[in-house]
Write a protein that binds this DNA or RNA. Structure first.
Lengths: 253, 253
DNA sequence: ACCAATTTGTCCGTATGTATG
DNA sequence: TCATACATACGGACAAATTGG
């Protein structure tokens, strides 16, 4: 061993494109750059960082992906407010890769839905309740079309989510929402009976909001999800099979 | 108007780098490429896609960021299993940018923690309970060091999470965990009293696991989080202030 | 321990299409 | 309509790191 001492820490070289991304990210997270602010053109960034165009572009891609940087109509760079579904798309794909089961998905959805209804009951406004009822009426008009029912069902739950007025919960729910609601058209498949039960559950949930009755809300949230599970199993699916793109098609781009 | 008809749909050009990313992503999500499989060198991808290497590299960055593609020790490309904290880091930063309040964070954490304890009570094994008790003993040994207490507290809740055996819930919790647990050292600040209450709550939670007593678990989960809130407010913080990097420092890289 | 081949990281210059004023 | 600025994409180049003999 010809070493003198262990005076210096190991040097871990960081690629330039990564440093570019981190530098911009720091500015954003620190608040010095606020959503909507222009980042500058690629050429400007090239000058500021003293690196090549290609390097800047690679760095920009990183931030664009997570929504921290967006391009406006003219493709100019600006600080963006990452929307949840952007992140949730990645997250739901990760769940697929991890081969989580429908049982895990169902359990989590149950817990998160109960939390949602608790908050929604205490916070729903007249306008929100009216909007939810309009959605139910629209659902009732397309009861023989499972795909349309599933679409309205998804919308209903998104609206319900909003009335809970908790963005942390909203973000937490999104990945599982993206996986479970697309399967509703399977769960209400064929039988108009399934659609009717769905509409009934939605009506009772809105009723709970009106009466500010937490227990009623929780009761029908449970029933609603148990219905989903029964429909899912009735159509020959197994709760312990991993979620995938076949049964959860909307996870595709 | 010299238009003939409206026969053709509008063409929305998709950048080449994006098509590269989507093509690779499709292979991964379809299962033809499994986690760990090599993607091929950049030169190979250049040949397969018939685009420039810079373009390939930009596309790769997109997938690297979400963890779908990783580089191994030799920086060769391979299909990756995105780990939750990777995604959660992005998500928690998004929450900061959206300026969510500690109240929202607290509400969501309460709901998610109750869901976790429900599942954990029914699934905890002897080994897991022993590991949790070891953690509590370790916490008790460092009661006068708020930072160390916060670290053990974070570990405790991660372990508890694992015993719930639900990866969807785990993913849903991660972003809020990253924001709330780092503030524990604030909440138990100074007074050893705070640390003692924390240890007591942990002991009762483990007790609930042993007795498979859901109600006991829920009771102490509530108390535990109410303690956190009291500590947070006692130290001069306001629940309605937005979460930020100052009070939640671990959200930084 | 050394060498040759491969691969990544970075840079330069250029061409093309498009949006804005 | 025209000119300018900009993003997108390409080809070629070289140094540094890694691999496998």
């Amino acid at each position: 061993m010809s070493e003198v001492a262990e005076k210096f820490a190991r040097i871990t070289p960081v690629p330039a494109y990564q440093m570019v991304a981190e530098a911009i990210e720091r500015e954003i997270l620190s608040g010095r750059l606020r959503p909507g602010d222009p980042i500058g053109t690629e050429a400007q960034l090239v000058r500021q960082f003293g690196v090549n165009r290609s390097t800047v572009r690679e760095g920009i891609r990183l931030l664009e992906q997570s929504g921290m940087v967006q391009r406006d109509s003219s493709r100019r760079l600006a600080v963006g407010l990452p929307h949840y579904d952007q992140l949730a798309t990645r997250a739901s794909r990760a769940l697929i890769l991890h081969q989580v089961s429908f049982r895990e998905l169902w359990e989590a959805t149950m817990a998160l839905s109960l939390a949602t209804i608790d908050l929604a009951v205490s916070r729903a406004t007249e306008e929100e309740i009216a909007a939810l009822e309009a959605n139910i009426d629209a659902t009732e008009a397309v009861l023989n079309d499972p795909a349309a029912v599933a679409a309205y069902d998804s919308e209903f739950h998104i609206m319900l989510e909003k009335t809970a007025r908790n963005r942390v919960l909203e973000l937490a729910r999104e990945p599982s929402n993206m996986l479970i609601y697309p399967t509703t058209h399977v769960a209400v498949q064929g039988t108009e009976q399934g659609g009717r039960r769905l509409v009934e559950a939605h009506r009772m949930l809105v009723q709970a909001l009106k009466l500010r009755d937490v227990d009623l809300g929780r009761l029908w949230t449970r029933r609603h999800l148990i219905d989903w599970r029964k429909g899912f199993e009735r159509t020959g699916n197994d709760l312990d099979q991993p979620v995938d793109l076949v049964t959860a098609p909307s996870a595709m781009a």
